[in-house]
Amino acid sequence: MRETALRRGLFLALLLLGLGLSALTRPMAPRLALALSPLTAPLPALGYRLAQNAKAAWSALRNRQDLYAENRALRARVALLESENRRLALEVARLERALAVRQTQAPGLLAVAPVIGEDLSGLYRRLLLGMGEREGLRAGMPVIAPEGLVGLIVEVGERQALVRTLLDPESQVGVRPEKSPGRGVARGAPPDHLVAEFPPTVKVAPGDLLLTGAPLGLFPDGIPVGRVERVERVQGGLKQRAWVRPAVDLSLLEEVLVLRPL
């Protein structure tokens, strides 16, 4: 009982002290607290600073993880865009080639066809195109590349077409020298040459460019066929034979241009 009374008494005394203290120091707050803060402030300030540093470190770590993820995403996006850019560059180059041909051969251009294969026998030089009847290709259509003549379509399937190139031994192309009159016929001489025969009166010399002529009626006039490498007289001087390197490197062809037949 006595202890309870003492506890109550102590509580009341401290309560009054607290109330009195608060009333007395009220005009001085928070100046007084600020003046006395050196007694209490260092430890909370230490805790505060440590927590701030820890939070900053955590934030930096998290940001770094974010940056890593963002970097990976950006790398993937750059790779995608580079791939797209390459595809578009190829598309632009293809269209430029088609445009160049259209400007020179228009309105003869029918299609730009991919080369999907070639004859591997070594006996013939033929190309397989990835387009066929469905795309409007027909036998007898000339096939060219921006650099010059490629050959002639000889067989057409629904989705494929076979091109007999000017290097094929069965190929015959009417040709003429670029800078002098006269006509001749060029036949394929595998693996990588043509042999053109001219009358002895035609002026042909090594280095001359041969173009298609129209006597056989298969190709438009003026398409580059190849460049003369050497000239020799045959049949006792009744003919001259020119060895010609084709203007188009067939092994590098990825796509060709198909023209409407004459």
Binding site: L10, L14, G18, G20, L21, P30, A33, S37, T40
Partner: peptide
Amino acid sequence: GLPGAFLLGLCQDLVGYGLLGLHAV
């Protein structure tokens, strides 16, 4: 315990730069 709590409250008042006696009470 009672004076200890009172002093601790004063300390809390100082830490909080508040009115002396509020937390003490």
